[in-house]
Structure formats: structure tokens, C-alpha cells
Design a binder for these strands. Structure first.
Length: 127
RNA sequence: GAAAGCAGGCGAGGUGAUCGCAGUUGCCGCUGCUUGCAGUGGUGGCUGAGGAAAGUCCGGGCUCCCGAAUGGCCAGGCUUGCUGGGUAACGCCCAGUGCGGGUGACCGUGAGGAGAGUGCCACAGAAACACACCGCCGAUGGCCGGCUUGCCGGCACAGGCAAGGGUGCAAGGGUGCGGUAAGAGCGCACCAGCAGCAUCGAGAGGUGCUGGCUCGGUAAACCCCGGCCGGGAGCAAGGCCCAGGGACGAUGGUUGGCCAUUGACCGGUCCCGACAACAGCGCGCCGCUCGAGGCCACCGGUAACGGUGGUCCCAGACAGAUGAUCAUCCAGCGAACAGAACCCGGCUUACGUCCUGCUUUCCGCC
RNA sequence: GCCCGUGUAAUCCAACCGGUAGAGAUAGGCGACUUAAAAUCGCUCCAGUGCGGGUUCGAAUCCCGCCACGGGCA
């Protein structure tokens, strides 16, 4: 499962911004950075952006040398993001998820479990 | 039936549906203006990873820099190195020769030169390019003794030998017979090597005859010989989105060096001017995919491959696209290695069940 | 995508042109010293050189192919 364009993070400046300003949350082998959307870093006129969430997954080659395995993890987490129901009063937010070495060893269920607790701890859901 | 060898094919099992992604294209809407384009949204069509996409080990194309091109000499580099062919090229492929391995089908091969020179050959050993430790002999000469006075015996001094022993990866042709004081290619037979001749072959080489009689190993040590080669960086190349013009300077510079020929260049310094800064460190654009291209047929060739004709268009992303769910079909919950990133040709490595064909050996039965 | 470098005792490192893998340091064990410990001294243990082939009489070293790790380039 792959994200549609309006949910993607694009451009080096966007990523630098999140790495510098983002609030970090840690859960197991996952690390999430949350930052308010800075729409001036994007090229589209602001009225087309609306209040969307944008999301990105970073998996370095240290996680696994095999590109196939990294692609599989990314698809899994993209799908988890799309299925997730977020707080309705959430302002436009950018999320960046980092995977640490060893994440390949985890099963899909374990990884998704860590994802949902991470989202809760970051205060992005209702419950 | 079992085991094995070789060659080749295939590789999300097929079909359909829904949701979602990338490219492209048709239609509709909106925005902008340069009025037929750009951006964006919706909707339909088509296309969408591999045999290795991998490792980055070779060979090219392409691009820029070192100013350009051609020729010669020298230098430098190259695991380039049996022969002949194929290819754009290759360290690749095909066919053959020699050598080695296997009962065999077959497989491997880094296979120029040690008779140009230098180096090295630890330990052991006398000696590792030239020698004698133990040893054999002592014919010849020397010394001693005997006597039938030119012979015999002894010594092992001069000297001869490299057979045997020992050392070692290796002691320098091997085995046998003759020969000799003892020995030795000293002579002979066979074998191995070398040279010459004849002959077969396009060649590497094969076969036969003759000859003299022997020269250690190592070149994946330096090196010699033959062959090949401008160098460097790499699509993160490079170009566009950008505004340039003038003056000084006049011999200096430049491919590893030199020479010859042709034909050129401006690096440098200064002045004037323009633009920009929520894009110049970019959610930018191009390069970016039609190519030594795939498939089919015929022809040439043992083959690699080549020729002719027809036909097809087959990913081009940029935080980086193929997945999820369901249904159904063959008997099997659906296998492994693994994800294009400028493009080709190879090699290597990982992986797999399955399939196909040919062949060999063994066992059983007729 | 591209370009480099490094792999040897538990750890850090030597062994240069091939000749029995250790010169050394840290750590471990035993003993001495000490009431006990630390420090110090003595002794000792620890590998076949990342893996697989090849050349050679002989390979950590030379050659080829892999593997792992580290670094650099916008």
C-alpha cells in the first residue's frame, strides 16, 4: 500500500525541518517525530493544501541490506497510517517515522502493536 | 530402477472483481496568460521490475575536464599471453591442440621465455650452478716390504669416481646389460627430453626417421619477448531556468616527455552595467529512454555468430511506483534468491523447484 | 548511484621484499608480597591469520572470487 500524493512528505527542506523541529517519541524500535505543518516549504498555493496529515517512513540500509525487505516494511507502515483514525480536532501535522536496526526481526503484528501504542503516546488519537 | 554428466527452458501458478500507486493518453471542469500551451481536479483507455534488477569485477556508448587532430620515438600501464575464429569491444564466447583428473559420459587449465641477465631456494645437507661428508678405487705416480729384477703384496700420500648411503620438495635423465682400477651416455637396447629432416594440418601441433648425448626449480620474484592502450572523472556526468559588455596584455601556458605537420584557443588583471534574495543548499526543468532493441521466418557457418525480409514498441520514478482483500480453476496452506535508478555486452555470486532433451556407469529382469 | 580502506589470541596491535605466528600492551587464571585489597613481581592460558580456491617444496604474506565492517562524494 502506497500513500497518495496529498499525504506524502516531499523535498529535502521538509525533512530537514522535521528533523530539527519535530517532537520525538520512542517506542521499541520505532521513533516518531511530530511537527506542525509548515506549508510555506511546499510549492502548492496554500488553499489547495487544506488541513491534511502528511507522513513519511525512513528505513536506512542498516535495518536490512535487502531493498525488498525495506520496501515491505514501508508498505506495512503506510497501510497502518492510512487505516489509522486520528483526532478530529488535530491541526495540520507532519509525521516522520524512523526504524532502527533490528526491526526486520520483528513480526508484522509486533510492529503494528508498537505503532498503535506510539500513536497513543503521541496524543494523536481520541482514546 | 538408482547415481551421475552435459545442454536448454521457466521462475509472484492462471483468470476475474474491489480499493490504492507510477507513467502516458482521450474527454470534462477550474486557474493563468504568450490563445494553444502550462498547472491542477475529476473520469475512462493502455502500460508498469529480474534472471540475476545484486556484487561493482571487466568491456563499451554518452557527458564534461585536462585546448584539438594525425604520425613517429621514448617512457608508463595492463593476470593481455597455446592456435584459429566471433564480436562495437573485452580479461567474454565458440571450435580445436597439448597437459592434468575421472571406470565413463565429461570436466579443469594463470598453457610465451629459466638454452638473455639478476635475485631467491629457510631448516637439513659436503654441495641448491656446481660440490664430495660417509664411501668406492688407487690402473698411473709416490712410500714401505718381498724376492725369481720386473713382477707381487701392503699403505691410502698425490690423485680418480659419483655407483651406493645420508640430507632434503629438489642432488640434474630413468631401467637393464656390457664396460672399468673404481666409475661415468663410455658403448648398446627401450623409455623420457632436446635438435634436425620428412610428412599431415590453415595453425597450435600430430606421426615417422636420424643425430649427438643432457641443460635443477621458481617469472601469480624482478625481468625479457609478443600483443593491446591518450589520461581523469563519472548522469551526484553535464546543460537550462541567469546579462552581459569593454579595456589591459602580447609571450606565456597547456595532453607523461620530445619531434614533425595542420589548425586554433584564451587562462589572468581591471572597469562599467544588470538581476536576485518566502526557488539558487530548488516538493524546479532537461538529460531519461528506439536500443550494438525484442520476436518470427529463410539463408550461410560444426559452433560462437552473421546476412536478408517481416513484425512489435516493451518501466522511466526522484523520500523513490506492483500491494491488500475476495472469488474461482489444476490434486498440493502457494516455493527460493531477490526490487529498475543513464543505457548496453559479459563475468561472478545468491537461489529454486520444476520441466525438457541427450549421454554415461552400476544393479535387476527378458 | 559512485569511490576508497580494513579484517591475525577475549580486546588493541606486530610479524617489511614468502621460511616454525608473537615482539608488545590490556583482560583472565595461579603464586609471591599484604591483616585484606590495589599496585608491583614471577609463571601461565589464549589463534592457525574473515571464507573458498590457486601458484610454490612451503602462503598471514603472492594471485583470483566472495563475505563482513568502516569511511567519503550532492
Amino acid at each position: 500500500m502506497v500513500l497518495p500524493q496529498r499525504h506524502r512528505l516531499r523535498g529535502r527542506g521538509v525533512f530537514d525541518y522535521i528533523y530539527q523541529r519535530g517532537q520525538r517519541f520512542q517506542q521499541g524500535l520505532l521513533q516518531l517525530r511530530v511537527a506542525d505543518a509548515a506549508t510555506n516549504l511546499l510549492r502548492e498555493p496554500p488553499e489547495t493544501l487544506e488541513g491534511e496529515l502528511r507522513f513519511g517512513v525512513v528505513i536506512s540500509s542498516k535495518v536490512s541490506k535487502r531493498a525488498v525487505k525495506r520496501n515491505r516494511l514501508r508498505r506495512l507502515l503506510h497501510e497502518a497510517f492510512l487505516r489509522q483514525t486520528f483526532r478530529s480536532d488535530l491541526p495540520p501535522t507532519w509525521l516522520l517515522l524512523n526504524l532502527r536496526p533490528g526491526a526486520v526481526e520483528l513480526s508484522d503484528d509486533n510492529l503494528l502493536e508498537e505503532w498503535s501504542t506510539l500513536i497513543q503516546r503521541a496524543g494523536l488519537t481520541d482514546s
